[in-house]
Simulated assay, not measured.
Amino acid sequence: MSSKAISLSIAEWPEDAKEAAQLVVDQYGEPDEVTESWVVWHEPGPWKRIIASREVHNHNFPAPHLDSVESVIDYRFPDEKAREVYLFDGSVVINRSKGEVSARCHDEQANFLALNLMHDVATGAKTMQQARDYYAKEFLDYRRKKPTPYMEKLHFTPPKGGTADPDSRVLTDEALQQAVDEGKRGG
């Protein structure tokens, strides 16, 4: 797909979404998939995939901005830390069944920051509040043109697969068949 075709596909997107998608194009080149609503790159840089979307979401942490670029990694997230990450940043999403964690922010640098801090919370290196405080500090340092190490790259190596957690079965085949039979009989 040519850059011209990409430009045409995102031409009608909201300005913030268009700008964010263009940053990913500038970084990783041509996407692997383009639809009316999504532009997707598979395995660019350290990511499992990056998705730039037409739809933007308001996000007020650490300051009001719009989220539209999602960076995804394979990650087996510890169950006991899920609440802390939920409270740390609403743009970090744990998909336990797929074994993925993603961050959806305005750009790749903010996603690096969010996922590095997610990892710190998951491993116990930082509490939820320490992660929020560090995020705000690095966010301001970026604007001050000071070093922002958590925005430069991932500070851990995500696994390549093997992170899915399909959960545990609780219904037997017999129980399912009994329910089907009861449904056929009307209860």
Rank of each mutant, 00 (worst) to 15 (best):
F88T: 06
F139V: 09
V93S: 11
G183W: 08
K160E: 10
F61D: 13
A17V: 01
V92Q: 13
W41C: 10
A131S: 06
W13C: 01
L140G: 07
T172K: 08
D32Y: 15
H155F: 07
K146Y: 13
H57I: 14
E174D: 07
R49K: 15
A122V: 00
E15H: 06
L115Q: 10
T127W: 08
V56G: 15
V93E: 09
E36L: 13
W38R: 15
I73E: 13
E174N: 04
W38A: 10
N116L: 06
E36R: 13
V34L: 15
E80S: 03
Q178W: 01
N95D: 14
T163P: 00
Y150N: 10
V72M: 07
S91I: 05
P62H: 15
S71R: 00
E36H: 13
P158A: 05
L171N: 03
E36T: 09
R132D: 10
I6A: 06
D107E: 13
D165C: 00
V25D: 07
D79T: 09
R83M: 06
A110Q: 13
A179N: 00
T157Y: 03
H65A: 08
L154S: 07
H57V: 12
L23D: 12
I94V: 09
F112R: 01
R96W: 00
Q109K: 03
P147T: 14
H119E: 01
W38G: 01
Q177V: 06
Y150R: 13
K184V: 07
H59V: 10
H119G: 02
P31S: 14
E84V: 01
A17Y: 04
I50W: 14
R143F: 09
V39E: 02
F77R: 02
G186K: 03
A82Y: 03
V34T: 15
P62Y: 14
N116S: 06
I10S: 10
V24E: 08
R54A: 02
P159V: 04
L115W: 08
V34K: 15
R104A: 04
G187S: 10
V121N: 03
R49V: 00
A103T: 12
H59M: 06
I6V: 11
F139A: 05
V39G: 12
P46C: 02
N116Q: 04
D181Q: 06
Q130F: 08
S37G: 15
W47T: 01
N58L: 12
Q27E: 15
A175P: 01
S3C: 07
I94N: 03
A21F: 13
G90T: 07
R104D: 01
P159F: 02
W47H: 05
V56A: 09
E33D: 13
D89F: 02
P149K: 05
R54E: 01
F77A: 12
H106Q: 08
F139H: 10
L66H: 05
A122Y: 02
W38T: 06
P166Y: 10
A52W: 09
V85T: 03
S102H: 02
H57Y: 15
K126N: 04
G29A: 09
Y75F: 06
S68K: 06
S71E: 02
F88K: 09
Y134F: 12
D26V: 05
D107M: 12
K81W: 02
D26W: 08
L171V: 12
G29M: 11
F61T: 07
F61K: 14
L115Y: 05
H106I: 04
P166M: 05
Y135T: 04
G124F: 05
L171E: 03
A103I: 11
S71L: 02
M128S: 11
G183A: 10
V93D: 08
P62V: 13
S9A: 11
